[in-house]
Amino acid sequence: MKKTKMKAFTLVEMAIVIFIISLLILIIMPNVAKQRSNAEKVNTQALQAELDTQAQLYADEKGTEMENVAPTDLEKAGYLTAKQVAAIEKHHLKVEKNEQ
């Protein structure tokens, strides 16, 4: 009897590999979505803190009230970048007065 060497995968082997990969994807995807949501939340909080800090600095320098400061004013004065202002407007963030 001659032994034949197997040179290719069988259909069953391929089906098992595809099943295992699919199972791993089903396990991983909800965790990735949750982490993305958490990262977006943390990013928004950091952006709000940056906006409030820069607005306070601007208001102190100009002698105005913090609530009257707009993100575009902060961009023109060099306190924020255009990218930061775009993100602030995207998230509809407003200047919040910090009670100290």
Rank of each mutant, 00 (worst) to 15 (best):
F9I: 07
A55H: 07
I88F: 00
T4G: 02
K90Q: 06
T81W: 04
I16K: 07
K76W: 00
V85R: 01
L23S: 15
V69I: 12
A33M: 10
M14A: 07
F19W: 04
E50D: 14
D73W: 01
M29N: 07
N31W: 08
I18D: 10
N98G: 10
N31Q: 11
E99T: 14
A70Y: 02
H92L: 13
A82C: 06
I28L: 15
I25L: 15
K90F: 06
K76R: 03
D52T: 10
N38P: 04
N38R: 07
I88V: 01
I28P: 06
I16N: 05
I28C: 14
K76H: 01
A59N: 03
K41P: 03
K3W: 01
M6C: 07
L93F: 00
A77G: 02
A46W: 10
I16D: 08
M29C: 03
I27T: 13
A77D: 05
L23Q: 11
L23V: 11
D73I: 00
L51I: 00
M1E: 10
V32Y: 13
A49T: 06
I88P: 00
M1L: 09
M14C: 09
E99W: 11
A59T: 02
M29Q: 06
V85M: 03
H91F: 12
E75H: 02
D73L: 01
K94S: 05
H91L: 05
N68S: 15
E50W: 06
L57E: 14
A49G: 05
L93D: 01
P30S: 05
A33Y: 14
T10E: 05
Y79K: 05
L26P: 07
V69M: 08
A86D: 05
I18N: 08
Q56P: 05
M6A: 12
T53F: 14
Y58T: 08
V12Y: 12
V95G: 05
L24G: 15
A33D: 06
L51S: 01
L24N: 12
Q48W: 04
K94T: 03
V17A: 15
R36D: 13
E13H: 00
K34G: 05
H92Q: 15
Q45D: 11
A15I: 09
N68Q: 08
F9A: 11
M29T: 08
A49S: 11
E67R: 10
N43A: 15
L74N: 01
T44G: 04
E13D: 02
L57R: 14
K5G: 08
L93Q: 00
L51T: 01
I27Q: 14
S37R: 12
A55P: 10
G63W: 03
A8E: 14
H92S: 15
